[in-house]
Computed example of a mutant assay.
Amino acid sequence: MQDTPTDAPAILLQSEVEPGVAMLTLNRPDARNALSPALIRELHDAIERLGKDDTIGAIIIAAKGSVFCSGHDVKELTAHRSDPDGGKAFYRKTMYACSAMMLSIVMCPKPVIAAVEGHATAAGCQLVATCDLAVASSHADFATPGVNIGLFCSTPMVALNRNVSRKRAMEMLLLGEPISATEAKNYGLINRVMPAGSVVGEAAAMAHVIASKSRTTVAMGKAAFYRQTEMGLVDAYSFASEVMVDNLMTPAAEEGIAAFLEKRPPNWGND
């Protein structure tokens, strides 16, 4: 993470909620945890660093305050209207940086879980959709409201459309209205709805289970999942068959199958 002046709070906090589980907490509550370029950069750096950390098996993204993430910082975007090019260079840099950060979550070998206690809108909703799993408070809501201010949520659309049906995605994008946590679960945007205050605990419990698995197997499986979703049926089966062969050749599979046959817990040794 970048150096922060000693008199300024860190915009991204990192903690270990239990062995093998890291938590990244968005810490811009006064700005509704908006994704400023600095926060985008710090999230990207942290995800890449934790992805290479052999002691970590899963990552949780949470937030301080009543808003999980409100998307891009529109005040910051507006300030660049006075740039000589009307802000175009800044906008391009920001959007590409945000897209690269979202892709880093997908490509991270460690599963990433969103723990949503409040509102998740625009690129904040995109962040939830991008995470591998998501747990939300019953008080949380989700929206892609850009259309309401003349700015269609085109980049959030990419992640949204890969989580929910086409009609549901278009409804959210065209109406710009919030949906409840229960609706989000029914849409397929999130996995579980929990009472307020228990979201991080539930996410940690899920992360604990994931972290107890073979790191090699989970990393192979996550990478394969995202690759096959972009393929046609025949290519997907061919690709997945090769992944299964490669997986069977790993020490993890050898140990796991032996443990199953011998009726004992497997010893992954964190691979």
Rank of each mutant, 00 (worst) to 15 (best):
G124W: 02
G232Q: 08
L133W: 05
V234R: 12
C69G: 03
G269R: 03
A123C: 15
A100V: 08
N27E: 08
L261W: 05
A159Q: 05
P265E: 01
S198G: 13
G124I: 09
K88H: 08
M23Y: 07
I61M: 01
I105V: 15
S66N: 12
A129W: 14
S99E: 14
A38W: 02
P109R: 09
S15W: 03
E76N: 14
M23W: 06
P251R: 03
E48Y: 06
L261F: 07
S137K: 12
E42G: 04
A62G: 11
V218C: 03
F152D: 11
L24D: 07
A252M: 03
L160K: 14
A184V: 12
F225I: 02
V243M: 06
S180L: 10
R41Q: 15
W268Y: 13
A224L: 07
C125H: 10
G146K: 10
S82A: 15
L175A: 10
M23L: 13
A63T: 02
T4C: 11
N163L: 12
A203F: 09
L35M: 13
T121G: 10
F239K: 00
G51D: 02
P145C: 04
P251T: 04
A129I: 11
L24P: 04
A219S: 12
T6F: 10
A143Q: 02
E262Q: 15
T182S: 14
P265M: 01
S99N: 12
V209D: 06
T121A: 12
H119A: 14
A34H: 01
E42V: 09
S212F: 06
E254C: 09
A219M: 02
S138M: 12
A63Y: 04
